[in-house]
Design a protein around this nucleic acid. Structure first.
Length: 421
RNA sequence: GUGGGCGUAGCUCAAUGGUUAGAGCAUCGGACUGUGGCUCCGAGGGCUGGGGGUUCAAAUCCCCUCGCUCACCCCA
């Protein structure tokens, strides 16, 4: 048996309905906030990600699907969406727009060990605002994200906010923190002892109890960011209040991508297991320039579709099928008439299916039931000779013979009745 | 890359080292040849993940390997 590749999953019918619902809600909400969809390729030149994400990050160092194509060019399946969107923004001179508010939906690829909420092919809904540095934009975009979660009925989530400062003030804090950690090195977990030099910010985000205690009085980044960054952060908080968005400050939150500056955030849920962020993002003011574009700001986020679907499945399990019609035919003549009716119902946008002959009438009824049809239309010799059709309500079991002319109207009426209740 | 847990029918799971590896659900058929669900009866479906070893005898014990899963790491 040929199976799918490790970490690459099929999404099967009952669940695809949920996915469509999620995507539809995102499109609706993003639209009213003035965003437009952008579709970018799933593969890019490797250097785009190396430059954009940072070539010492874990993603670039060991998690990318990188190949040589037949021309010996190094290409990579995108591990995230922002770099591609920024590339397209520069390539097509979208900076000529007053500001670019773009969203995308699609698969991303990272070569990691799969676990709960983490897959090698996973899907993100992302949005980016390019060309605006105003803190109101941070708040507005966060408000949009929260509006989306509200729309799909997800509560029990928390918006955690932080500022990572800019390229001027972050290194100052980093040194200060390194100093602090070095003094307490022996008390940290093995992992964090190693991290003091490679990634000190990560230490204050460590979950091990030992490290949490030791870093309790560690310097906070919010005390070290420069005045400009501080002002920006304060204004973001002020605008969040105006938009009515709730949040909590988490000065220990760290992001894994190099491009983030100033505002960063995560939306978390305690129902996701170890991978507890359902969405995350932040500001990236140097990225466009870094990738060869104008010196403009950026702000964006990405939502993890698998994680979101996981949360929504926990809640309401409404699997009720749509009201549908199933046509049972006995004999060639009935079949001819049945197909005619089938076409008519479908042209009127009704969900209609027809039985296949090799099943017999019993088999066809069974199939109607399994498919969840609310009504069946039964056509046999009796009906054909009298120009009638048997109309059966599968829920109540009640059936009657009705005139074959105008059957479509009758069905539409009945379905309208059912939907009202 | 490093750990832990688990691999038995399509699915969920049974089976002290000892007959022919079982059950529920699902599938198909019958009771009910123009009527689904409910009930009853029956059928199909398995190299017990794969390979090696111990033993008179292995789903069961040992080793190797592959797969899944959770966690570390990292992240959506």
């Amino acid at each position: 048996m040929i199976t799918s590749i490790r970490g690459f999953n099929d999404i099967l019918p009952p669940e695809t309905t949920l996915w469509q619902h999620i995507e539809g809600a995102a499109r609706e909400v993003f639209k009213v906030y003035g965003f437009s969809e952008i579709r970018v390729p799933v593969m890019e030149k490797t250097e785009l990600f190396a430059k954009g994400i940072g070539d010492t990050t874990d993603i670039v160092e060991k998690e990318m699907y990188t190949f040589s194509d037949r021309n010996n060019e190094s290409v990579t399946l995108r591990p995230e969406g922002t770099a591609s969107v920024v590339r397209a923004y520069i390539e097509h001179r979208l900076c000529n727009m007053p500001c670019a508010k773009l969203y995308y939906i699609g698969p991303m690829f990272r070569y990691e060990r799969p676990q709960k909420g983490r897959y090698r092919q996973f899907h993100q809904i992302g949005a980016e605002v390019l060309g605006i540095s105003d803190p109101m934009s941070d708040a507005e975009t966060l408000d949009m994200l929260l509006a989306f979660f509200k729309k799909i009925g997800l509560d029990d989530i928390e918006l955690q906010l932080n500022s990572l400062g800019c390229k001027n003030c972050r290194p100052v804090y980093r040194e200060k923190l390194k100093q602090f950690l070095s003094e307490k090195k022996e008390q940290l977990c093995d992992n964090c002892q190693r991290r003091i030099d490679t990634n000190p910010l990560r230490v204050i985000d460590c979950k091990s109890r030992k490290c949490v205690e030791v870093t309790d009085d560690a310097p906070s980044i919010l005390d070290y960011i420069c005045n400009e960054c501080k002002t920006h952060f304060e204004e973001v908080k002020g605008y969040l209040y105006l938009f009515g968005a709730g949040y909590s400050i988490n000065p220990r939150m760290v992001r894994g991508l190099d491009y983030y500056t100033r505002t960063t955030f995560e939306i978390t849920s305690d129902k996701l297991g170890s991978q507890n962020a359902v969405a995350a993002g932040g500001r990236y003011d140097g990225l466009v320039r870094e990738l060869g574009g104008p010196d403009v700001s950026g702000f964006g986020f990405a939502i993890g579709m698998e994680r979101l679907a996981m949360l929504l499945k926990e809640g309401s399990g409404s699997t009720s099928h749509e009201a549908g019609i199933f046509i049972v035919c006995i004999g060639k003549e009935a079949e001819t008439e049945g197909i005619r009716i089938l076409k008519e119902l479908r042209e009127r946008s009704l969900r209609a299916e027809i039985g296949y002959h090799d099943k017999g009438i019993k088999g066809q009824m069974k199939m109607a039931d399994k498919l969840g049809a609310r009504f069946t239309l039964i056509l046999g010799d009796d009906e054909i000779s009298k120009r009638e059709i048997t109309f059966k309500d599968m829920k109540t079991g009640v059936q009657e013979k009705v005139d074959i002319e105008g059957i479509a109207e009758r069905v539409i009426d009945e379905i309208a009745q059912v939907k009202k209740v």
